[in-house]
Write a protein that binds this DNA or RNA. Structure first.
Lengths: 330, 330
DNA sequence: TCAGGTCGTTTAATCGTGTAAATAGATAAG
DNA sequence: CTTATCTATTTACACGATTAAACGACCTGA
C-alpha cells in the first residue's frame, strides 16, 4: 500500500481527481474552492495520512515556521519557565521553537543569532545584553525579553516599580538599616530594580553597604564579609538566586532568616516557595512574559511595518517567611 | 550591492565563473574538483557571505539537520542539564535541537512525536514512559534516555547500582530502620533504583515504611504522616526533588536533617549542593547522558542498519550534610 | 446573440540544492 | 592517428510546495 515515502500533495490530488493547486488552496484555507471539493480533498488527505512537507513550503515561501528563543542559560530556574511559555504559545500558532542558550556571553549572542539564521528561524525572542549589536540589516525580527531594546519590540516586568515595592515593604516592616546585593549595573533590569529601590528608600532608609554580584547562587568574598558584619536588619537582593546565596551564607555563619536578618528576593522563581527556602520576593509573571513575547513576535512576522511596541508587565509583592518585622530597639 | 535577498549557489557560481554544480560539489566536500577551483569557489562564497539555504537542501536530501529532544518538563532542575548537553553536542555536528516537553503525559508523548515529525526532525532523543507506543513504521529514529527501550538505542545511568550504593552507604553509617519514598514502579528508573536498594539491603536493614510518590517537590499526606511518625533514622528518596520535599516536611514538623533523621537523594542535580539543601545523593552524570545520547542519535542517522546499542553510565556516591552516622542506642 | 463579468479549477513557473548523466578535454594505449 | 580511458566540469532534472496567470463554464443584461 504505502510507497515507502510519505504522500505528497500530488498523490492527494491524483486520488481526489483534482489538480495539485486545488489541494494547496484547500490546505491553506484560502477559500477558493467549492465546499464539496474542499470536503473531498480534506477527506482524501486525511485518508492518505498526508502531512505537508515543511521544507518545500519553506523553500517556496521563505517562512520556516520556526522561531528561536535565546536565553542566557537553561540551568537556572527562571529561564525554563519563560521558554516553556514561549514554546506553548508558539506551538498554538503552528511554530516550533528552537531554544538555545547564549551562555551569558555577549560575544556568543551574535554567534547564536547567526546559528539560528543558518537554521532558518523566522524570528526570535531573546534576552540580550544591552551592548549586543544587531546585524544590519537584521537577519530576522527579534523581540527583546526583560528589557527595552532600541528598535526592537520588547516585553519586560516593571523592574523599577518592583524596586520601589521592595523598599516600601521594608520600610513598612520597620527596617532602617539595609544591605544590598545588587547586580552589575550594565544589565538594564538590575539597574532599574536598584534605581526603584534607591528612589523609594531615599531619606527613610540607610543603605549601610552594597555589593555588586553576579546573578548566580554563589557570593564573592566581599559580599560574604559584608553579611557577616551584622550591621543590617535586611538584605535586599537583585534576584532570588542571589537571595538564596545570601541565605546559604547566613546558614554557614550560624545565622538565620528572618531571626537574625531578613532576606528579600526578586523574581519569584518556582523554588522560592519551597518551605526550605520560603523567600519573600517581588513576583514577575514569568509565564506571561514568555507568552506575550511570543505573541509579539508572531504579530511582527505578520506585519513587519507595525510600529515597535514595549509591553510592561506589573509586579507584585509575595510575602513569605524570610522577612519579618524589625525587632524593637532594646 | 546586495540584491535584497541573500546570495544563492548560482550567484556564487556566476561570480566564480563556474557552474552551480561545481559550487555544490565544493561546498559539500565531495572532492571532485581541482584544488584551484576549490579555493576559488570557497573564496567567492565567503566574499559574498553565502550561506546554504537549509530548506532547499532539506527538500532535496530529505534531511533537515534538526533533532528533537523530548523531556517530561523543563521546569525541573535535572532536565535542562541534559537538554543543554544534547544541544551542545548536536550543534557541534551541525544539528539544531528542538527541545520540547511532553508534560509527563504518555498520551501527549505521541502527539509531541508527531509535532516533531511535522517540523521535519531527522531524529530525537527522548525520555519516554515505558508504555509509549512508537509508530510503525517509526516516524524517525529515537534514542531513549534514562531507560532501555525495546528496539531503540538507549543511554542511562546504572540505576540498579545506584540503589545498591545507597543501601551500602546507609548500612555503613549504621542505619537499620529506613523509610523509603520510592517513585511509581511503572517508571523503569524508579523501579531499578528501588530494586537495587532492596536487594542490597535484604536482611541487613528493616524497611519500616514505603510510600510511592510523584517525582515532584511536594509529598502526599500519606508520606508526610509516615515521616512524622519518627520511626526511622533515614529516609531514602527516589530522587533529589523528592528528597527536598522530605527536607521541607522535616522543617515544617520541627525536625531537621541529619539531626533527627538522615535524608538520601538520587541524581545530584545542581541544587543538591547548595548549602541550604546540602544533600547526600547518588550522582548520575547528567551532561554525559545528554551528549552520549546525541552521539548515538547522530551515528544512527548516518547508519540506520547499525545494531541497537545500550549505553550504561556509572553512578557515584556524593556525601554531603543531609546524612550522618546513626546515633548510638541510648 | 454576444460582450463582459464571476467563479472554480488548472497550467506552469518558481524557490535553491543535489546529483545522475552528458560532455569536453586530456592522456594513454594500440 | 585513431580509439579508449580517465577526469573535471556542466547540463538538466527532480525534490514538494506556492501562486500568478490562463482557462473554461456559467450567468447576466443590452
Amino acid at each position: 500500500m504505502s510507497r515507502g515515502r510519505s504522500p505528497t500533495i500530488k498523490d492527494v490530488a491524483k486520488v481526489a481527481g483534482v489538480s495539485s493547486a486545488t489541494v494547496s488552496y484547500v490546505l491553506n484555507d484560502l477559500n477558493k474552492v467549492t465546499p464539496e471539493v474542499d470536503a473531498l480533498v480534506r477527506r482524501v488527505a486525511k485518508e492518505l495520512g498526508y502531512s505537508r512537507n515543511n521544507a518545500a513550503r519553506a523553500l517556496k515561501t521563505g517562512r520556516n515556521n520556526i522561531i528561536g528563543c535565546i536565553l542566557p542559560t537553561l540551568t537556572s530556574p527562571v529561564f525554563p519557565e519563560i521558554a516553556q511559555a514561549v514554546q506553548l504559545r508558539a506551538e498554538a500558532h503552528g511554530y516550533a521553537t528552537l531554544v538555545i542558550d547564549s551562555g551569558n556571553a555577549p560575544m556568543r549572542e551574535e554567534k547564536v543569532v547567526r546559528t539560528l539564521a543558518k537554521h532558518g528561524v523566522d524570528g526570535a525572542v531573546a534576552l540580550l545584553h544591552p551592548n549586543f549589536k544587531l546585524a544590519d540589516p537584521p537577519l530576522f525580527p527579534i523581540v527583546s525579553l526583560d528589557a527595552k531594546f532600541p528598535g526592537l519590540d520588547s516585553v519586560h516586568a516593571d523592574h523599577y516599580a518592583g524596586g520601589r515595592l521592595m523598599a516600601e515593604h521594608a520600610i513598612a516592616l520597620g527596617h532602617r538599616c539595609i544591605g544590598m546585593l545588587s547586580g552589575f549595573q550594565d544589565l538594564t533590569s538590575s539597574f532599574e530594580r536598584r534605581q526603584g529601590f534607591v528612589d523609594a528608600a531615599a531619606g527613610r532608609v540607610e543603605l549601610v553597604w552594597e555589593v555588586n554580584v553576579q546573578l548566580v547562587p554563589q557570593l564573592p568574598p566581599e559580599a560574604v564579609a559584608a553579611i557577616r558584619r551584622r550591621e543590617v536588619t535586611m538584605i535586599a537582593c537583585v534576584n532570588d538566586l542571589v537571595a538564596i546565596a545570601a541565605l546559604s551564607v547566613l546558614k554557614d555563619s550560624g545565622m538565620s532568616a528572618p531571626g537574625d536578618v531578613s532576606v528579600f528576593g526578586f523574581d519569584d522563581m518556582q523554588w522560592a516557595s519551597w518551605p526550605l527556602i520560603d523567600l519573600t520576593t517581588i513576583r514577575q509573571p514569568l509565564a506571561e512574559l514568555g507568552s506575550r513575547a511570543a505573541d509579539l513576535l508572531i504579530s511582527r512576522l505578520d506585519d513587519r511595518q507595525r510600529p515597535v511596541v514595549d509591553v510592561v508587565l506589573p509586579v507584585t509583592l509575595v510575602e513569605r517567611g524570610s522577612t519579618a518585622r524589625v525587632p524593637p530597639l532594646p
